[in-house]
């Protein structure tokens, strides 16, 4: 464990909690892409099946359970409890355009053709593009609630911090995982446009609105 990975995990946890609280407190999931949340629930489910097979540490186990629990709670709030506030018209990204290619790639490019390893690889690739429906939705509506931008900021920051974690681990432990690194770079690049808008607008107290 190193400072980059710890702050990365805490940033990820903060993002997940911010989103859950936003939906719960405002009793509305306006502006939130339910499809991205389904993808995140799928990412955690396929990545954390090793909860059933191996124990790494209490921290590891507890964080995985929190992530999975919050992901499914968020999907439940969006599609069941506050379904009336779900903006399905703007959340129109075709999930099959992500899941099918990612599934195929996971079968072609992986470290080991075993069940858990393929699922882990699938979850790594899927996570790198899971935010696309949400970013697509914001580009369609042309704006995002400020609390949603904070959610996206911490979510994007977490994987950026993981990039530093991997540099650290390569330098000090000689460990590196090319699949996780390449997917992490892609994932972080997808946020660059948003990061620019977040820093130049939201941090200056303006609302995040895309040029119509």
């Amino acid at each position: 464990m190193n400072i980059f990975r710890l702050t990365g995990d805490l940033s990820h946890l903060a993002a997940i909690i911010i989103l859950l609280l936003k939906i719960w407190k405002t009793r509305s999931c306006a502006g939130i892409s339910g499809k991205s949340q389904i993808l995140f629930a799928l990412v955690f489910t396929t990545r954390y099946l090793d909860l059933l097979t191996s124990f790494i540490s209490f921290y590891n186990t507890i964080m995985k359970l929190i992530y999975i629990g919050c992901a499914y709670a968020t999907v439940y709030l969006i599609y069941m409890k506050f379904k009336a506030t779900y903006d399905g018209n703007h959340d129109s990204f075709r999930l099959e355009f992500l899941v099918v290619p990612v599934g195929g790639l996971a079968c072609l490019v992986n470290h080991d053709f075993s069940f858990l390893e393929i699922l882990w690889t699938f979850s790594i690739y899927l996570e790198s593009v899971a935010i696309l429906p949400q970013l697509f939705m914001i580009s369609k509506t042309g704006e995002a609630e400020t609390i949603t931008t904070h959610y996206l900021f911490f979510l994007g920051l977490y994987r950026a911090l993981y990039l530093f974690n991997w540099i650290w681990r390569f330098y000090f432990e000689g460990f590196f995982d090319m699949i996780a690194i390449v997917a992490g770079v892609v994932q972080t690049i997808l946020y660059c446009d948003f990061f620019y808008l977040y820093v130049t607008k939201v941090l200056k107290g303006k609302k995040l609105s895309l040029p119509a």
Binding site: I56, N60, H111, N165, F175
Partner: peptide, 10 residues
């Protein structure tokens, strides 16, 4: 560098 062993990252 066999990375399939330690999946200790979240």
């Amino acid at each position: 560098l066999d990375s399939t062993t330690d999946k200790d990252e979240l």
